[in-house]
Design a protein around this nucleic acid. Structure first.
Lengths: 335, 335
DNA sequence: TTCACCCGTCGAAGCGCTTCGACACTCCCG
DNA sequence: CGGGAGTGTCGAAGCGCTTCGACGGGTGAA
């Protein structure tokens, strides 16, 4: 193992000079800096993370808390995680993966043992038990998702409330008068998952504003659930012509179910999804959708964290405005 | 932050005694140990990972290299990752997530900076560029997947060769004489991904052994690809009655495609999948399958790693025997 | 020319922990 | 009753690094 004293000897300077040359915390002459850098390169030196003096310094590791609860769509969550890792690496950080069960305990452990020096927290609930802990921790953290009381925290998310409204606005503009939201699985709402709840709020508010008849249905996944919800919608709201779906794995099965029931999309029924663009674009019918920008959210979260680490001020909540892309699944209300 | 000296003072012993009491590396009287443990609990002490003396010791972190290349099925990979994290936590380790691009560079960095003290490597190719690096590293590692030359490494995987054979054996026993393998996307084979290649070998070997007509087709995912491969199979092998599918996201679309073409499963065509049990069980038609035990593999990998860390000898390759479960997608050859 | 100041560098102290080598006991055998 | 062998505990050294204070030499203003 090559250590800082090796580099120092090789460059003909003292270890402290090497340290300063690398950290830039004190002025070092260009000449010396160059020699140090050359030595570092030649010897392949890397500062050992767990060196004593480093205790005070940052560990260049950030922890990512991904609960992986039931009802979440795994590819989307993974997309988030990958984008966080990628962004973190771009800032010289590594990422420690914390999963469910570890949720609270893990955050505490990682903070107190000094393993990580920052936290990204996913799958945030409106009343999240992790919030008090996060507020009390000396480590900076960023939530992906906005809880009910974001005071003292830093959050970033798609503005799901506005996303819900945007979908309804779109359907209303096309003339639809009766709409429904097919949501995530029930357990997601039971947990009071922030983004799911906010989408419902936005959907309902916009439907009321436009004076539409509306209904909200949490829904599980799979063919059976799709068939059941499709039948139920047609039965309970015979005038239904507009549906918003916030449930990635249900999209294709739901399209199939409607088709089997003789409902054509978009001729008889307009369907708008809230999901990542690739999902919407590769569905059986290209779906008009409000995109969930998972990659951008992960990247933003890391940027905010890096800024916090450097002591810069950051906004409490960053809400990305929703963008609706029209594809083949929506059209004017049939007569 | 509570440090070891605080605990020592609180327990009325010296810091070194606390250290020994916690590590068990020297005999400590029950009485003293109890007092130390009480103090630890009361003060909420946790040893700081990055303390100087710890440089020599383990970091209790293992790195998980998940390339996330195209063509891999995200939920399965995620399942692996989660099981590795869970198992690692059970052994008191945390997990650092390394992704693509980081593949080689990341492994080196993590090893040299002492961030992790062990490695789990996924998505192994027959000739994997990471192998020389792994062999040269002072850190123990375990591969999930068996490369062409596993000497000096530790690997664990499902025996995909035997899995391929088992599927063919099953079809042959049911009387099928013409079979096909619908595999993973082409890029997976181009990369010479170990498990995919081995499955093909097993499939082909067993087909030859049984003197069956056989064909192998890598295949992309999605409805279009499913329809295309279904048509092609029926065209090129009119006598085809048995198909093995090694491509999770293609399963449902392929079943649909056959149905649309008027081919009934299992009356006209028997279909065997190689995939995790939940995928097989929740497909449109419950599928006869050889299970890919992702959770068990992740757990095994961690166990092996922990044993290596403790200096215990471990087998070079652990190949789990495949198990075939009959469900509703296979039946006797039609007359 | 002198003095204050700044720049670049160094040595030494210290981070929180582990570990080595004592040291003081106790116990048991001869 | 003496001495050897364990036990259990402690102090001190050291891990690789950062950081503080200091120092020498150059520079510019007075």
């Amino acid at each position: 193992m090559v250590k800082i004293t090796d580099v120092a000897r090789h460059a003909g300077v003292s270890p402290s000079t090497v340290s300063y040359a690398l950290s830039g915390k004190r002025p070092i002459s260009d000449e010396t800096r160059r020699r140090v850098q050359a030595a570092v390169r030649e010897l392949g030196y890397r500062t050992h993370v767990r060196a004593g003096g480093a205790v005070g310094a940052g560990s260049r590791v950030l922890a990512l808390a991904v609960p992986m609860r039931s009802g979440v769509h795994v590819p989307v969550v993974t997309q988030f995680a990958v984008s966080v890792v990628t962004a973190a690496r771009a800032h010289g950080h590594d990422v420690l993966l914390l999963t469910q069960g570890e949720g609270e305990e893990g955050i505490g452990r990682v903070a107190e043992t000094g393993l990580a020096d920052a936290l990204v927290v996913m799958d945030v609930q409106l009343q999240d038990p992790r919030l008090p802990l996060l507020r009390s921790l000396p480590l900076p953290s960023v939530l992906i998702g906005v809880p009910a009381e974001p005071d003292g925290l830093t959050c970033v998310d798609l503005d799901f409330g506005a996303a819900g409204e945007l979908c309804v606005d779109h359907l209303a503009r096309l003339g639809h008068r009766t709409v429904a939201l097919v949501g995530s699985p029930p357990e997601v709402y039971v947990r009071r998952t922030a983004f799911a709840r906010r989408l419902v709020q936005g959907f309902t508010a916009a439907a009321d504003r436009h004076r539409l008849r509306s209904a909200v249905h949490p829904c599980g996944t799979g063919r059976g659930a799709a068939r059941a919800i499709a039948e139920r919608l047609l039965r309970e709201q015979p005038a239904l012509t507009g549906v918003v779906v916030h449930n990635e794995p249900l999209l294709d099965p739901l399209i199939d179910a409607f088709e089997e029931l003789g409902v054509r999309i978009p001729e008889d029924l307009s369907l708008t999804a809230v999901c990542p663009t690739p999902v919407a674009a590769s569905a059986r019918i290209p779906l008009t959708s409000v995109t969930v920008p998972s990659t951008e959210l992960g990247t933003r979260a890391v940027h905010l964290l890096v800024r916090k680490l450097s002591g810069a001020p950051v906004p409490q909540a960053t809400l990305l405005p929703p963008r609706l892309t029209e594809r083949a699944s929506t059209g004017p209300r049939p007569d």
